[in-house]
């Protein structure tokens, strides 16, 4: 369970404070599928980074499974990222010199998982994203959709509770995007908490709920199937 209370994140740019997040309070239950939408610069990525323990809020509290993340040391945060959270990025971030299998294996190597188990989990994970045949390919030998699926396998190979995806389909054509989204849905159905940042209504539509950020604050929460309301609202915003 993710419990955010009064989260504020302020960046100091020169002597000008930039308020990326202002007093965000939100609770996301285990197994939920949440989409975060909002105009560019509204703080979506900042929120995701805080949830993923890559960043710390300026003020407010964040409890992950009942534990106050704010008081954790750097090493403990590293541990949280290693075991409880998976990341998927818009630009995949595969390491080009490593094969698909080696990319997936990477988090397990640093987590000290024995080789035999790693082998097995790599195979299982790549099979799960339908890329068992591409196990020895390098990223530049894969299509965009395949790369993102490798990244997805890597993000889930440590069996995290929570998967965070920042524009996971932002760089994909609609067909490969759909394949990735189907996989995400599948994993969510299996119990993975899924938080997706997106501009794409088709992506948000799949979520249980949609959180809309505007200027660093939560403007509105709607059910996933009420995506129409948000589109209207965002269109209104654009007219302003």
């Amino acid at each position: 369970m993710i419990k955010l209370e009064g989260i504020t994140r302020t960046f100091q740019v020169g002597d000008q404070p930039v308020h990326a997040l202002v007093d965000v309070t939100e609770t996301i239950a285990e197994g939920e599928h949440v989409a975060i939408m909002g105009p560019s610069g509204s703080g979506k990525s900042t929120l995701l980074n805080i949830v993923g323990c890559l960043d710390r809020p300026t003020s407010g509290s964040y409890h992950l499974n009942g534990r106050d993340v704010g008081v954790l040391e750097e090493a403990e945060l590293t541990n949280v990222r290693r075991h409880e959270i998976g990341f998927v990025f818009q630009f995949f971030h595969l390491i080009p010199r490593l094969t698909a299998a080696e990319n997936v294996e990477l988090p397990m190597i640093f987590a000290g998982i024995p080789r035999a188990e790693r082998r097995q989990r790599v195979t299982t994970s790549l099979e799960a994203v339908g890329l068992a045949a591409r196990i020895g390919h390098h990223p530049d030998q894969l299509s965009g959709g395949e790369r993102q699926r490798v990244a997805l396998a890597r993000a889930t190979v440590m069996q995290p509770q929570i998967l965070l995806a920042d524009e996971p389909t932002g760089n994909l054509d609609s067909q490969s995007g759909r394949a990735v989204l189907d996989l995400l849905d599948q994993m969510n159905d299996a119990g993975l908490t899924l938080i997706v940042v997106t501009h794409d209504p088709k992506v948000a539509h799949r979520a249980d709920r949609i959180v809309v950020l505007v200027d660093g604050g939560i403007e509105r929460r709607v059910r996933g199937d009420q995506i129409g309301e948000i589109l209207a609202m965002l269109a209104e915003e654009d007219e302003d």
Binding site: G52, R81, R82, I85, H93, P107, F110
Partner: peptide
């Protein structure tokens, strides 16, 4: 740089 960022996001410790 990006690779290092990735390693951090994957939960690779500083000393590693």
């Amino acid at each position: 740089t990006q690779e290092i960022g990735l390693l951090k996001a994957l939960g690779v410790a500083r000393r590693q």
